[in-house]
Each structure stands twice: as C-alpha cells, then as structure tokens.
C-alpha cells in the first residue's frame, strides 16, 4: 500500500523518516514525546493514531517504496514505544476492568460473557439493518476495511507466545479465520468480495486517508497487544470480546445489505461470521482466555483488560459513526 498523507507533526515526522534510507540517523523521539504530551485524547488524535498505524504497519505488509529495515530501526522503535506507552497508560486509566474474577477457566469465561452481554438501544448494527442508506453501507465497509482486510492477523502474533491448551484453542480459531486451508474462504478474502460487490476498492489500505482516528485506534490496540509478548493475555481477552460481540451484529449487517438487494456472494462475509463466531466465542471464552488465566494466573487482569479495552474503543467508534449518520453527515474523515 501507499504511505498515507500526514495528519500532524508526528505522523509527518514518521512518514518523512520512513521515506528516507534506514541509516538516516534522524531522531524523532522528541517529536513523539511532544505529540503525546500535547494530546488531549490519544484515542481520537488523528496525528498520533496515524503515526502509530504507520509504525505498526511496518510489521505487517509495509508500504510501497519503504525499506523493510525500518521495522526494526532503533530510532523508530524508540518513538513507537513513547506512543504505545502513552496509549496503553491512558487506556488503563479509563477502562473499567472487573476486579473480583478468580483466575479459573469457567469464572473468567463467565466474566467475559457478562461483559459482552447483548445490550438494548441504538447500535451501528441495528442502524445498518433498518435505516442505513446505500452510501452509509459503503461508509460502513470502508471503515471496517482497515482491519477486515487483514482480519485475524493481529491476534495471530500471540500463537508462539502461548503453550498447551490456550495455544491449541487460538490455532483452532485462527485456522477457521484463515478459511481452514481454503484461500477463497479466508475471512479477509470474503470481506474483499463484499467490498467488490458494493463497487468499492478492495486493495489493502486503499481507504486509509478516509479512516478517522478512533477507527485507527481500535486497530492500533490489537497491534499493541499482538506485538508485545507481555500483553499476550490482553490479546486473548481482546479476541474473546471481539468474537462474543460478533454473531448477532453480523446477522443485522447482512440484513442491511439484503435490504438493499445485495446477492448472497456479497452478504456471505456476514453470514459466515454469524455461524463462525458463534463457535469461536465458545472456544475463545473457555479454551483460550479462561484456560490461559488458569495456566498463567498473573495474566488474569490483562485478559479482562484486553476485553474491556476492546469494548471501550469499539463503543467509541460506534458512537462516532452513529452520531455522524444520525446528523446526516459522513462517518469518514474528510479529505481536501
């Protein structure tokens, strides 16, 4: 994918740096420090979240014309650490984590199901099912594309950091995410098919300029958890919360696309998730997150934190989308 355009001083420094040769020896840690210190809300800070997105993306697929060596450049890692630390600290301050959950398989699973229990009231899923216009469906797909075109990848980082039952459980889920060996059924490919069915560009990262900070933040959270072995518990909890809040909304997303006359090929992504995630949430709750808490009790808090942080940012992203749509505006980032 192409490097995006900067959204402020830190993303400008990062993008300028990775556009040069990796032996450039330019320090950007002070720019990073200034950017996080000046930020009033990191989760909705376009400059900080885009900078973190670009630094993280070097570990996934990189950018056109950017030297792969930047992934492990000490100066860039120093800047990334400043941003990650501030982002994680901010989330740990604000996210409510249940404190009385014993590190036992069934107790942790029950706590995760309780945290993710279906709630009444307005939601993006209900809006998509009943009210979204054709243009809003496009916006919905564009917003999701920044993660869904690499669906499952951030959680896969945790596989070599787990052992025994929790590792087998994560592999069981991820194998299904990756189509059980059939590239056509990989969930990222099914999403690309949905995008093409709606007439959108399914190239990886094609719409990054239109993605608002809060949506980048939700993805950056997964990358933060995934790229750090220390946070393997948070990855397990994040995946559990993600799977537990997927089946029922995906039914509604599919309904919205059917309401606009889309064919089965286009809605297959949503229909697949209704069935798949009803399986995954059971495995993720007990065999992954619950069993990991029992195996490594010191990770219990992080497992619940990972789930709570997932729900917190997803709620904010949902509120951003709904408030824009109900006001008759666009949920996408405006570009000049």
């Amino acid at each position: 994918m192409k490097l995006p355009h900067p959204r402020g001083p830190l993303s400008d420094a990062v993008i300028t740096l990775v556009s040069s040769s990796p032996d450039a020896q330019t320090r950007i840690d002070e720019v990073a420090r200034d950017a996080v210190d000046a930020s009033t809300d990191l989760a909705t800070d376009d400059d900080v979240q885009l900078a973190l997105y670009v630094m993280n993306e070097l570990a996934y697929r990189g950018f056109d014309g950017v030297d792969d060596d930047w992934e492990w450049d000490p100066e860039l890692l120093r800047a990334r650490r400043i941003v990650e630390t501030a982002f994680e600290d901010a989330l740990r301050r604000v996210v409510q984590v249940p404190s009385d959950v014993p590190p036992e398989r069934s107790e942790v699973a029950a706590a995760l199901f309780a945290m993710t229990a279906p709630a009444p009231g307005p939601s993006v899923a209900r809006y998509v099912a009943k009210r979204a216009t054709r243009e809003q469906l496009d916006e919905f797909l564009v917003l999701r594309s920044i993660y869904q075109l690499k669906e499952a990848d951030p959680h896969t980082w945790a596989i070599p950091r787990l052992t025994g039952g929790p590792k087998a459980a994560l592999v069981e889920i991820q194998a299904d995410e990756y189509g059980g060996g059939d590239p056509e059924r990989m969930h990222c490919e099914l999403f690309a098919r949905t995008m093409r069915g709606a007439g959108l560009d399914a190239d990886y990262g094609a719409y990054v300029e239109r993605i608002p900070a809060i949506t980048l933040a939700a993805l950056n959270l997964m990358s933060l958890f995934g790229l750090h072995r220390r946070l393997r518990g948070a990855t397990a909890g994040h995946l559990a919360a993600f799977e537990m809040t997927s089946s029922l909304p995906n039914r509604l997303y599919g309904d919205g696309f059917r309401r606009h006359g889309f064919d089965e090929g286009t809605t297959l992504y949503f229909d697949e998730h209704v069935e798949a995630d009803a399986v995954h949430e059971q495995i993720a709750g007990r065999d992954l997150a619950g069993a990991l808490a029992q195996q490594e009790p010191e990770l219990c808090h992080d497992i619940l934190f990972g789930a709570a942080a997932c729900l917190y940012l997803d709620d904010l992203a949902g509120e951003h989308t709904l408030s824009a749509w109900t006001a008759g505006g666009s949920a996408l980032r405006a570009i000049a």
């Binding site: 199901f113 089946s247 029922l248 209704v274 009803a278």
Partner: peptide, 13 residues
C-alpha cells in the same frame, strides 16, 4: 437459532 442446526448466538439475546 435462525440457522439451525447451527448456533447463531441467539441464546445470549
């Protein structure tokens, strides 16, 4: 479930 025999998560709702 709306996709019986398979589960679609409705038991939670």
């Amino acid at each position: 479930s709306a996709i019986k025999p398979y589960c679609d998560g409705t038991h939670k709702a």
